[in-house]
């Protein structure tokens, strides 16, 4: 049976520390200014600002990256087959080598800014590549989270899941009813982003 990889993010646990963002950057050797995963503050107008009026405040964080939709519109429209959904595990891949920079995928993605279009020649903080992801970064191509496909291939979890200090992220195969993700989804309140767009994301948020 084919797999259906999903990621669960527990918003009750997440403290918005951004360790995932930095680990992603290291693992995938991302250029300066490029983030494949970010943490959005759900609150006031600005990072780490709560919503409401003192003292009735609330503050939450939303880690945001590619949602790896089952009905991925991006895979549907990519002229260069750079974006495609892998049938065997549901990961939506983005191959910067094939990308022609037309940005059709960005147009049709309901989740703004989970993809990065590097306008200029990528610049790096370091003189040597970090991490293990061998894919190159080129100017004027689209990049995004790949669920760390290169790590999945050797049986590891994505980097962001591995490093989370509060273990807010869980990763696994939803088709396996014994998996931790299936168990958690069966027992915890959860929701998905923009379900009304019908793309069936693979990222679930536990609340």
């Amino acid at each position: 049976m084919s797999k259906r990889y999903v990621m669960l993010i527990d918003l009750q646990q997440c403290t918005g520390c951004n360790t995932c963002s930095v680990a992603c950057k290291q693992e995938n050797n991302l250029p300066e200014g490029v983030w494949w995963t970010r943490v959005v503050t759900i609150g006031g107008n600005g990072d780490d600002l709560p919503a409401g009026h003192y003292p009735n405040l609330r503050l939450d964080y939303l880690p945001l990256a590619c949602q790896h939709c089952a009905q991925a519109p991006c895979a549907e429209v990519c002229p260069a087959t750079a974006t495609s959904r892998r049938e065997d595990d549901g990961v939506v891949m983005q191959d910067p080598g094939l990308c022609i920079g037309c940005r059709s995928c960005m147009m049709v993605c309901p989740f703004t800014s989970v993809r990065v279009f590097a306008d200029e020649q990528p610049r790096f903080a370091l003189l040597f590549p970090t991490g293990d992801n061998p894919s190159a970064h080129r100017a004027r191509t689209v990049e995004k989270c790949t669920f760390c496909a290169h790590r999945l291939a050797r049986g590891d979890n994505p980097s962001c899941v591995d490093v989370c200090p509060v273990q807010a992220r869980t990763f696994g195969d939803l088709n396996d009813s014994a998996s931790q993700v299936a168990q958690l989804l069966a027992t915890r309140l959860h929701f998905q982003l923009l379900t009304e767009k019908g793309t069936e994301p693979s990222v679930y948020y536990l609340i």
């Binding site: 610049r123 003189l127 190159a136 970064h137």
Partner: peptide, 12 residues
């Protein structure tokens, strides 16, 4: 290969 240049799979 200096700062500001992209990395290729070959490099790794």
């Amino acid at each position: 290969f200096l700062r500001g240049l992209a990395l290729t799979s070959k490099t790794i």
